[in-house]
Design a protein around this nucleic acid. Sequence first.
DNA 1: GCCAAGCTGACACGATACTGACGCGATGCC
DNA 2: GGCATCGCGTCAGTATCGTGTCAGCTTGGC
Lengths: 219, 219
Amino acid sequence: MRILLIEDDTVLGAAVRDQIAGDRQSVDWVTRLDTAADALYGASYDLVLLDLMLPDGRGIPFLKALRARGDVTPVIILTALDQITDRIAGLNAGADDYMIKPFDLAELSARIGSVARRYAGNPNPIITHGPLAVDLAARSVHRDGRPVQLTAREWALFETFLQRPGQLLSKAQLEDKLYTFGSEVESNTIEAHVSRLRKKLGSDVIETVRGLGYRLGAA
Amino acid sequence: MRILLIEDDTVLGAAVRDQIAGDRQSVDWVTRLDTAADALYGASYDLVLLDLMLPDGRGIPFLKALRARGDVTPVIILTALDQITDRIAGLNAGADDYMIKPFDLAELSARIGSVARRYAGNPNPIITHGPLAVDLAARSVHRDGRPVQLTAREWALFETFLQRPGQLLSKAQLEDKLYTFGSEVESNTIEAHVSRLRKKLGSDVIETVRGLGYRLGAA
DNA sequence: GCCAAGCTGACACGATACTGACGCGATGCC
DNA sequence: GGCATCGCGTCAGTATCGTGTCAGCTTGGC
């Protein structure tokens, strides 16, 4: 994960950089907003740590401009400003989280992890669904705490359901999703895979809507 | 948006409730974890505000248990505990955000909005009709919050009414709509399906106009 | 009170879905 | 390179479910 740290305090900046590096993340550290803008323009970051008081301007307008031009990179604000109005302004400007100096570096790590996971598209690193715990990034599924091995096709099918919770998916839609054009299947392949998935994950995971298709169970 | 507030301090609880209500959100306020568990079990909330110190237990194990059984409802922790370790424990237990008392109510609103936006995941428009909530895309119907399973024919019939609210539809029209040319039906099929729909959705959903046909109830 | 229209429980049949078994092809390991 | 393993598409037999039909009952109009 690539992180851009925008912080002019050299002591704090170095401490944050070392903490993050210790978490096996890659950090670029800049001390000015104009170099930050260049960095964001030229490269892609997974997360921005933004100090609000910088030598060449304030962070809030910078953040607003960033969002205005469509950048959705998650931003955690680091600031000494303890004014509640500033915190609100920061959140409203599009920040994802807030750390007030002085803060604990371990907490910063926790929050970076939290925001990064959110950004990965999931509210949590682990999506839990009834007795199932799913890590989309790691492609792993646990049932009642026990790991379950899914094959590629099984995973593709299950993931399709997870991405559309509650949505009814016809067999035709699922075939489109699982098979590229040309490599059509002609039999009850989807039924068979649903059957295999149920055997591994539990019979209530996917519910049948007869004549129409399948959907993820309410669980 | 439905919010569950778990807070035993009556003064703070009332203030939070009023603030949220002022934001046009619906709030249920409980003061104990066991009633909170009941509420979460019985209904669906979009957000939980959780105090960590409650008369019948602490919030962190409660939150862990919630996540363990698959509930992904976003949770914001409200607490007087200013220990950094507690804040990390809260985030690790699956909380989405943290507010340390005393906090500003406007900031709470901002954070609720932030969390809600993050989770605003329902792209499907929900049509509500009296006690019914219908998601046309997902082909799902809820009555009084409870899901109702409709078969293919039942859905086709119900959808026909929904697309023409208030309009009178004769049995012949409905047959044309539900059956393709050639696969005619010869008996009281429509009556039978209306009967089944009423049994599932409530007797007042479809009203009979004797001699002419049916129409969607006023609800 | 009579008749027509509508309602609904029961039933049977056809359609649909489930699942264990099989075989082919791809992959991995000596 | 040969052998074992594994994934997966297919098939067939079985189980399940939906729904059209009917019969008996209820309701409503006159």
